[in-house]
Design a protein around this nucleic acid. Sequence first.
DNA 1: CATTTGATGTCCT
DNA 2: GGACATCAAATGC
Length: 181
Amino acid sequence: MIDPEFFARRAAEVAPDLIGHLLIVGETGGIIVETEAYEPGDPASHSFGGPTLRNQSMFGPSGHCYVYRSYGLHWCMNIVCRPGHAVLLRALQPTHGLDVMAVRRGTQTEKALCSGPGKLTVALGVDKSHDGLPFDGHSISLIAPSFPLSPVQSVRIGISRAVDLPWRWYVAGSPWLSRKS
DNA sequence: CATTTGATGTCCT
DNA sequence: GGACATCAAATGC
């Protein structure tokens, strides 16, 4: 399991370190290949402006989930770092339970199973009921890579505020990203 | 191929 | 009422 100290840092420090970790939810999972950091004081972050009913998990214990509804219909999954900080999981390389994920996603094309924040929650079966749950190896696990990767740093995607903050990290050339880079 | 559009939860003004 | 950390299908070149 991951040292709790790993999560109790700034989101912008945790996000690149999460690249290469194996995320397991139930019988499905994959390797994290794309993340984004959101911090307090960051106008694009849900924690900007303090706690609300919706974002309260973002101010809860580090190393837990923050799951929210995006655009009224998609679930998005974050890992909470220190209070008000969270890392959005944007894409996975599918490794576990591909058949189950394909059924949930209703697609045959393996490269599109987890290639986006709204897609990977469907593939993993994550929804509001996972909000606030810990990555403790019970229903949700996180396993460190055997060797560190060197992700590429870039600007975030799909936001309209603080668009210049270079807080997106991804595995260069990976075919599993939410968009080609 | 690129661009537009529809689905509609939760928070903010 | 409007904005939004999105996706897939429809439409237009």
